[in-house]
Simulated scan of single mutants.
Amino acid sequence: MKKPGTRHKARRRAVDLLFEAEAKQVSPADLVAERRVLVHTDESVGQIHPYTARVIDGLVADQAQIDAVVSSHLRGWTLERLPAVDRAILRLATWELFNATDVDPVVIVDEAVELAKELSTDESPSFVNGVLGRIADLAPQVRSAAAVELPGDAED
């Protein structure tokens, strides 16, 4: 078995934080900020990896869009009916598919499936793979559109 890499651990921490924030009904960004303060006084609280923070910040900024995309690609399910951990994994991976241009979409889907294997039900890995496979088809267009928007945004 391959040893998980740093980015895998950062993704897992992001899923944990998304899950916890939903359970506590708080913003994931607020939870990250709280942990960054706590790490100085509580040795049991680990540092927040920069990639974890990047994903959480991106998800908070784009949550309505991400949820709409995930919801539109579910078959026979609603976002609210999914197990909370599956929701967190799908949100994380969808954000990455659209925004993490330094990561191949195949890797993103594989990582999400691995997280589902580690954290969720026996049926979740294939479910997550199917949903993300459909969403991954959109990733090239979304990434291209974002790349075209960036130069114009820099001038503002």
Rank of each mutant, 00 (worst) to 15 (best):
V106M: 11
E80T: 12
E43D: 12
P105I: 07
S44C: 03
W95N: 04
L92H: 05
L90E: 08
V45P: 06
R87N: 07
L90P: 07
D67F: 03
A93N: 01
W95R: 01
R91V: 00
R75F: 12
I56W: 11
W95E: 02
R36E: 15
R54V: 05
V37C: 00
V39A: 11
P83F: 06
I56Y: 10
L90T: 06
L59M: 14
I48D: 10
V60D: 05
T41C: 09
I48L: 12
A53K: 15
L38K: 15
A93L: 00
I56G: 07
R75Y: 08
P105H: 07
I48T: 14
E43F: 12
H40P: 00
D42A: 09
D104P: 02
L38G: 02
V69W: 06
I56N: 10
Q47W: 10
I89T: 01
Y51K: 09
I48W: 06
H40S: 13
P83R: 11
F98V: 01
P50I: 10
I56V: 15
A93V: 05
E34R: 14
T52P: 06
T52N: 07
A64I: 11
V60W: 05
L92E: 05
L74N: 02
H73Q: 10
P83N: 13
N99P: 00
V37T: 13
L74H: 05
V45S: 07
I66V: 15
V70A: 04
A53S: 13
R75N: 12
L97Y: 03
L82I: 02
V106F: 05
H73F: 15
V69S: 05
V60H: 09
Q63Y: 04
H73V: 02
I89A: 01
T101P: 00
S44Q: 14
L59K: 01
E80W: 08
V85Q: 08
D104Y: 08
D104M: 07
A68H: 07
L92K: 04
I66T: 14
L82K: 05
R91N: 08
A61S: 15
T52H: 05
E80C: 00
E34K: 13
G76S: 06
N99Q: 08
P83S: 07
T94M: 02
V55G: 02
R75Q: 13
V45G: 08
G58Y: 09
R36I: 10
L79R: 06
E43N: 10
F98C: 02
D62Q: 14
V70Q: 03
Y51A: 09
P83G: 11
Q63M: 12
H73R: 04
R36W: 04
I48C: 08
A84T: 13
V106K: 14
V106L: 12
R35A: 06
Q65R: 14
H40Y: 14
V55A: 10
I89F: 01
G58H: 04
D104W: 04
F98K: 01
E43P: 08
A33I: 08
V85P: 01
R75P: 00
Y51Q: 10
R91C: 07
V45H: 03
L59D: 01
G76Y: 04
A100E: 13
D62P: 00
H40N: 15
G58I: 09
R75I: 11
D102Y: 09
V103P: 00
Q63H: 11
D62E: 15
L59V: 02
E96R: 08
R35P: 00
V45E: 09
A93Q: 03
L90I: 05
A68K: 13
D57G: 09
T78V: 02
